[in-house]
Design a protein around this nucleic acid. Structure first.
Lengths: 126, 126
DNA sequence: CAGTATCCAAAAAGATACTG
DNA sequence: CAGTATCTTTTTGGATACTG
């Protein structure tokens, strides 16, 4: 029984990971929290190359986490935005956001600063 | 300014991912939530091969999330357990655990069952 | 038992050029 | 602009045998 409870929690963690795992999915979702964004802008803001971004967005769309809207402009533009269902992930994103901030503070001993590099760079410089 | 806020959230998400990303780290932590466990048992329960498990545990140890304790038995055994600091990740783990359960219910329309395979298997069978 | 060494397969990511 | 195609590199994960 103890075994089963343990199985269950690690199964559900793996289920979540099967949807949002990888370097980019949660980043994309967290950016879209600020509102809809077009493909290229999303690519620029996140630094994700078009090929990867396209793939990630398709997967997020398949999992009903983002919506792709083609705008009747000239030339055509495409907007990506969050679905209602994606709101159920807010707890996860918020928790990771908060933890990331605290963890960086812990490592740097000061408030997070956009200009500072990644944590791995920081850790390696120690 | 809007841009900076957006940068900040996705920076902190990436910071968190830099520590717990990958297929296994959160799974390992979630298993250790049930208490300390020895190397081999951890390998058996999670299904992680020794080489990977060893590497993951070392990384978790470097980030002060697990403690490795050598026990003076014959032959020597080694116990892994969570650190105090790892408790700060509880929110993240809980959120992912809850989301995984809900998401599986949504896809299967029934209570989660350990006997059922992974969600990707489920999704592909549709 | 705990872990490393070796070798290998698969997945993920990236650069860049190109198309409608 | 939005995305795909192509090619390459890097990262990750896994099987298995071996050592103290």
């Amino acid at each position: 029984m103890e075994e089963r409870k343990c199985m269950r929690i690690h199964l559900s963690i793996m289920d979540t990971l099967s949807v949002v795992n990888g370097k980019w999915k949660l980043v994309i979702l967290s950016v879209l929290l600020n509102g809809k964004m077009r493909f290229r802008e999303l690519s620029r803001v996140t630094g994700i190359s078009p090929r990867i971004l396209s793939k990630e967005l398709q997967e997020l769309e398949m999992n009903e986490l983002v919506i792709r809207t083609v705008c009747d402009t000239k030339p055509v533009t495409v907007e990506y935005s969050l679905t209602e269902y994606s709101k159920t992930l807010d707890e996860v994103i918020d928790a990771m956001n908060r933890w990331g901030i605290k963890h960086r503070e812990r490592l740097t001993g000061r408030k997070p600063n956009v200009k500072t590099g990644t944590l791995t760079q920081l850790a390696e410089s120690n």
